[in-house]
Structure formats: C-alpha cells, structure tokens
Design a protein around this nucleic acid. Structure first.
Lengths: 173, 173
DNA sequence: TTGGTAAGTTAGGTAAACCAAACAATTTGT
DNA sequence: ACAAATTGTTTGGTTTACCTAACTTACCAA
C-alpha cells in the first residue's frame, strides 16, 4: 500500500499547488491548478490522472480535487522543502524575494530528506549561535558587496560580539 | 551569434561529461559519454545533434567529439556550479561524499548565476571570518547530531575564539 | 587483405508533459 | 428553468529524451 515510487518534478508541482489551493479555497479546481502552474486547462486532466493512479488525490471527472492522506503528507514535505530553501536563500544568502522564490521552486525537486534536514539545522544554528546570528550575516552581506573584507577589524568585532553576548546574558537574569 | 537560449538539464549533463572526458582523454567518445550518463549508446547520437545545432560541440558522424569555445565556456560554468554546490554540501553541511555528489548533480541545474556567486561568497566568508571557520562548523556538526546545543557554554566559546584569533594575529607578526 | 570486434548510427517505439481546439458538463444570472 | 458563460474533458499533435535491435563504419591483428 504505502510504497512510494518517486514522483516526477511535474507531479510534485501538482501536489504543491493543490495543497496550496486547498488551504486557500478548501478544494482545488482544475482551472486554478492550471493557472498556478502556468499551463493550459487541458493539460491538467492528464496530470491529475497520474496522481489518482498513485492514490495521491481524490478525483473523478468533473468533481473537485482533494489530496488523500498520502498526498497531503508528500505535498507538505515538498512545501516544507520549498520554504526551507527559500528561507536559506532569503535570510542567509540575502537574495531578493523573486530570485529566492524562483530558485527554491527549482531546487525543491533536487534535495533529498537528509540534505534538507541538515540545512534546517544549519540555518537554526547560524541564527542561534552567538558567534553568528543577524549581525554576522550583516557583515557577510557587506563583504559580498565589496568583494573583500577588511580582516583587520576582526578583534574589535570579536570583542563586540562577546560584549553583546554578556549583555544579553545579563538581561536574562 | 553568441546568444544563449537556455539548455535542458540533459544538454547540460552532456556538456559536463564531455568536458570531463576531454580533460581525461583529450577527446570524448560516444561510448564513454553514454557510460558516464548511464544511458545507451544509441541515445547519445541524438543528444549530440542537439548540441551541434547550438554550436556547442564539434562533431560529425563517426568523428570524435570536442567542445567549441562556446561549449567549453558553458561546460565550465556548469562544472563550477557543481563543484561549488558539492563543496557547500560536503564542507559546510558535512554530508557524506555520495549524497553530496548526487545532490550537487541535481541542484546544478536549478541555481542561477546570481545565487551561485552569492553562495561562493558565503562559503568563503564562512571559512575566513574568525567568528566562524572550521571550529564553528565543528560545533554545528555536534549540534546537528545531538539535535540541541548547550547554549550555556557560549561565553567560554567566544572567549576561546577571541584568544585563538589573538594568537594567530601574534604569530603573523 | 581481410575478417572480426568495437564503436557509432539508424529506425522504430515508448513515455511524459505539454498545447490548441473542439466538445461536454456544470454553474449562474435572471 | 434555461440560455450563456465558465469550467472541465477529449482528441490529436508536438517535443524531448530515452530504449532496443539491426545495421554500418572504423580499426586492428593475423
């Protein structure tokens, strides 16, 4: 029953937008799927059939479309991958909204479970560790703009970083 | 002349292995391309024709295969993307060789020029900045294994980090 | 030189994804 | 309730990228 042959990129995209539409409108309609995927209405029917065969959606001709439990699970996984990648591109690499969104959209089909979990940890750690966090990212951004960093002020930077941490620690008590 | 409509993933893969084979053996042969791509000999011919049409390879039936200037340029770009992504997965996220290689292979088609350049900067900065570098990565790895970090030792960690930097600075003089 | 093997090509076929346009069902406004 | 508009499906076609098997070319070796 619960076996999962892997899905094509196209099929993953369908699941993703169906989940999205379910959340927006309770159910998904072929027309809206077509619109979100940027394809023609006629192409959707075939796409849906392939998902029915894999028991990922509930659907009969002219009915509306919902995800099965199995479908929800996979759609949520993909959506999560998308969000994590986008977050990384946006908050860490500081790419602009459009590039981040588009790139995440393409990358989401390329990363496996292990890699995505590791990336989650990485981003978490990066923002929580006092040695990094927002101000470190800020310095990175300046570095990447200039193409070079002035590594001579590192001691000051480290001093400040330590001081800031001590302050924050104090404040908590 | 030098316009570049974008290539399919398959075409990018061809260019990548052809460059690889050129470096290994001076020229690429259809059989070796097939082998590296994991496809049949017969499929290669068609693939090559599509690259000839885009002036990316020099090739006539029964001849050997080399990249044109334009082809080299693109092949090198793709190879570079591959290497950068693999580096990130390997050295930053600390994924194992096989996962890193396979994932980079899939991701290389999904990232654009801007994103890859930003990632290069990021990795450079991460390893050069005294606030991060190898020992920071090491702590991240422990964190990601345990699932949690003991954030109580941060002050010591920052102290050590500062001390280490001062030592290194001293040593340089 | 010639015959066998390895390498390359061709031909015919499949599958996934799409399109456009014709057609069918459903929904909506009055 | 029923015509019009909207939505969904079907059909026939295209493209990309493979496959297998038969055939051709190139190369090497006795």
């Amino acid at each position: 029953m619960g076996k999962r042959e892997k899905l094509s990129e196209s099929q993953e995209d369908y699941l993703e937008v169906i989940l999205d539409l379910e959340r927006e409108n309770k159910v998904a309609r072929a027309k809206d799927i077509a619109e979100k995927l940027g394809i023609q209405r006629g192409s959707v029917t075939g796409g849906l059939k392939s998902l029915v065969e894999k028991s990922l959606i509930n659907y009969e001709p002219y009915s509306f479309i919902t995800l099965t439990q199995k479908g929800v699970k996979i759609a949520e996984e993909i959506t999560r991958r998308h969000q994590i990648l986008k977050d990384f591109l946006l908050k860490v690499l500081q790419l602009d909204e459009n590039t981040a969104e588009a790139t995440a959209c393409r990358m989401e089909h390329a990363v496996d479970e292990t890699s995505i979990e590791r990336l989650v940890s990485f981003v978490e750690y990066l923002f929580q560790c006092p040695r990094t966090g927002d101000d470190w990212i800020q310095s990175f951004i300046e570095y990447s703009k200039k193409g070079k960093k002035d590594w001579s002020k590192c001691e000051e930077c480290l001093d400040e970083c330590l001081a800031r941490h001590q302050d924050e620690n104090q404040a908590e008590k």
